[in-house]
Design a protein around this nucleic acid. Structure first.
Length: 417
RNA sequence: GCGGGUGUAGCUCAGUAGGUUAGAGCGCCAGAUUGUGAUUCUGGAUGUCGCCGGUUCAAAUCCGGUCACUCGCCCCA
């Protein structure tokens, strides 16, 4: 048994989970296309450099969470730990500056070597949305509207809050960062061990520390809003005004931050209190500095990613489509086997969902039909064959009726609705 | 990477002053009913008690290690 275990932090998606994933994806696709986003599917691995460059050498994701290996040609490659870097790379590789702005959506597996817990896997799945090449706040508004529409379409809007912040333009952000480092450096003795490290690597992160002592310090820490310059203020006001006009509820959280340098302006998280410690269900922000950092031309970008596993836990039963019920063909006797297979094939060609009752006596086969949640069982034996009919039993009503083989498809379709 | 909890049948779980053959419900299989399911009745199989080692006359039970799951921290969707 030991060796038949899935690798730690991975899971098989089947049954109810598969239905949930598919339902969510279909709704996502529908909503995204309504916003004129196009599908993009980038490779699940890239040169390690692509992620190192963009995420920075000090981030946790790069230093300890990446699945990196050398391929047979000696290249260092990494299973994608996030979407944005790969899509930005694709944007440049394909010369899409020419057709900018671009709006993308994508869905697939993401890999991070983390300690698994509820709502956190090593291979997990994200839906992703990006708008590239639009520096205007309209992109921020649209991307937030898309997120909000998606969560509402999934029926979980009521359990989720949008937390919103602006990290400002580079000038504002640098000014704030300096003020913050300055402030915390003056209180080093009261900072938690984790936050002392953050002070070096990622001072903004101290703001969302869960340590009690840190929180007291954070209370009196400088507020980012006080460091916005005029253009940042205007940009943020435009975003807020835009989502208010649309009727999206939000909460300003000036401690919501992003560690990486290429982030600017809008940062947001849609969170829930129903998933334990992993409350963020969808998160994103603006990354106008990213392309430059990757060696391309300065290009604006904004996007978000949503965690499939977390959403799948939240959505309620009633948005799940019931699987369509099949017709089950039950041959009786050796002579009926081949004609039954042929019948199944013909009915399927007509678009009817058909399964076979493979073995056993009639009782066994009926049992199987029932277990398959079939609408009808179609009995085909010597007697029926000789007369060119099939016995069609309605399993819900327990009634049955002989149908001419030529009429069978039409009969099943006609009453199937 | 750090700390806590848990690991017994396919599933949900009983089972500790260590003691003979390890249990229940659900599910599964078979029969009652060899041309009629879902109900009912009868019967059956569930298993290296996560794995390895130690203590003991004796370990599912106690101890150590290990693996997995789980909750939290870090980080993040």
């Amino acid at each position: 048994m030991a060796r038949l275990q899935p690798v730690r932090g991975t899971h098989d998606i089947l049954g109810d989970k598969a239905i949930r994933f598919r339902t969510i994806y279909e709704i996502f696709k529908q909503v995204a296309e309504r916003y004129c986003h196009e599908e993009i599917d980038t490779p699940i691995f890239e040169f390690t450099e692509t992620f190192k460059r963009t995420l920075g050498d000090t981030s946790d994701v790069v230093t300890k969470e990446m699945y990196t290996f050398e391929d047979r040609g000696g290249e260092q490659v990494t299973l994608r730990p996030e979407y944005t870097a790969g899509i930005a790379r694709a944007f440049m590789s394909n010369g899409l500056q020419q057709s900018s702005p671009c709006k993308f959506y994508s869905y697939g597996p993401i890999f991070r070597y983390e300690r698994p817990q509820k709502g956190r896997m090593r291979q997990f799945h994200q839906m992703d949305v990006e708008i590239i090449g639009v520096p205007e706040p309209q992109a921020d508004i649209e991307v937030l509207a898309l997120a909000s529409d998606l969560l509402n379409a999934l029926g979980i809007g009521a359990h989720i809050t949008l937390e919103l912040n602006s990290l400002g333009d580079p000038e504002s952000r640098v000014a704030y960062r300096d003020a913050l480092v300055n402030y915390f450096a003056g209180h080093k003795s009261k900072l938690s061990e984790d936050s002392l490290k953050r002070l070096e690597k990622n001072p903004l992160r101290i703001l969302d520390s869960k340590d009690e002592g840190d929180r007291l310090l954070v209370e009196n820490a400088p507020r980012i809003g006080d460091y916005y310059n005029d253009s940042t203020k205007k940009f943020f006001a435009d975003v807020i005004g835009g989502i208010e006009d649309i009727g999206i509820k939000y909460k300003i959280n000036d401690r919501l931050v992003r560690g990486l340098d290429y982030y600017c302006h809008t940062a947001f998280e849609f969170t829930t209190d129903q998933l334990g410690a992993q409350g963020t269900v969808l998160a994103g922000g603006r990354y106008d500095g990213l392309m430059e950092m990757m060696g391309g031309p300065q290009t604006a970008g904004i996007g978000w990613a949503a965690g499939m596993e977390r959403l799948a836990e939240l959505i309620s039963e009633d948005i799940l489509k019931n699987p369509q019920r099949p017709v089950v063909i039950t041959p009786v006797g050796e002579a009926a086997q081949a004609p039954a297979m042929k019948m199944a094939h013909d009915l399927r060609a007509d678009g009817i969902i058909v399964d076979m009752a493979y073995r056993g006596n009639v009782g066994k086969r009926m049992k199987r039909a029932n277990k398959q949640n079939a609408v009808y069982a179609v009995l085909l034996g010597d007697e029926e064959l000789s007369r060119g009919v099939a016995m069609v039993k309605n399993l819900d009503q327990g009634t049955q009726k002989e149908i001419e083989l030529a009429e069978l498809s039409a009969y099943l379709k006609g009453t199937n609705q």
